[in-house]
């Protein structure tokens, strides 16, 4: 089963410098964080999705659609109740609350989508290469990309372990919340033990291939700013400036 998020495609986005893709993600986060109302968030969301589509990364969203929908639904329900407004709809729910809930749903989901676009278009190996150029220590950058690498491994292992315990009669479908929570112990312990053992071999393999031999390290992947990088970064800076300007001058 393929559990890596990276999508090996040949698009301009995949060829971008990893730094550009990092900035695009962080820039999206910053802009999204500035706004709390529906209209600007919808515009930003559309831009982010457009950006994602230009790199053919959107099919990956299918894999997290449940998460996106759950977050959207939760946000809608919670804010509908929690945010009082002038136009009552039903009981404590107000029209303003619903709108705010939708806005928050878009806000959080768009951030996740921006992160997903980054992970779908950036090879794990590119992350440390790009970040080192941003003066982040290699070991820190490598640890981050390794953590990402571990996610699919852990998911894969938990999948096997769940099957092993279900074969022994563990029934995860029934019981109330507390009973069910207790049922996860036979899953969690083997997952931890297996991951720790696996990580140990991984660390030994790293050391045995000269990891940390010296601070001078060459890179097979070639990175550097090209035309596309410059255009995208310019657009990003302009959008950031526009957002800040709008934020200060209007009440969006």
């Amino acid at each position: 089963m393929d559990m890596f998020l990276y999508m090996d495609k040949d698009t301009y986005m995949h060829r971008l410098d990893p730094r550009t893709k990092t900035f695009m993600m962080l820039g999206s986060f910053a802009i999204i964080a500035m706004f709390y109302t529906l209209t600007p968030l919808m515009v930003i969301s559309a831009l982010v999705i457009l950006y994602g589509a230009s790199g053919k990364t959107l099919p990956n969203l299918k894999r997290i659609r449940v998460v996106l929908m759950m977050i959207g639904l939760f946000s809608l329900v919670i804010w509908s109740f929690a945010k009082p407004g002038a136009t009552p709809v039903l009981g404590p729910i107000s029209w303003e609350g619903i709108i705010y809930g939708v806005a928050m749903a878009i806000k959080i989901d768009t951030m996740i989508i921006a992160g997903m676009i980054f992970l779908s278009s950036t090879k794990m190996e590119e992350i440390p290469v790009g970040w080192v150029r941003l003066k982040i220590p290699y070991r820190v950058a490598f640890a981050f990309s390794t953590a990402l690498r571990l996610v699919p491994t852990i998911v894969g292992t938990s999948y096997i372990i769940t099957q092993a315990q279900e074969s022994r009669g563990l029934d995860l479908q029934s019981g109330n919340l507390l009973v069910r929570a207790k049922k996860y112990i036979p899953l969690l312990i083997p997952v931890f033990v297996s991951v720790i053992r696996g990580t140990n071999v991984f660390a030994m393999a790293l050391e045995s291939k000269g990891f940390g031999y010296s601070d001078k390290r060459s890179n097979y992947l070639e990175t550097g700013y090209n035309k596309a990088d410059i255009i995208l970064l310019t657009v990003l800076v302009l959008l950031l400036a526009l957002s800040i300007y709008l934020k200060i001058t209007t009440k969006l």
């Binding site: 292992t157 096997i160 372990i161 099957q163 092993a164 315990q165 074969s167 022994r168 112990i185 036979p186 969690l188 312990i189 083997p190 033990v193 297996s194 053992r197």
Partner: peptide, 10 residues
Amino acid sequence: VFQNPDHQIF
């Protein structure tokens, strides 16, 4: 019985 005993012992 799964291949790796560590996948079930807890």
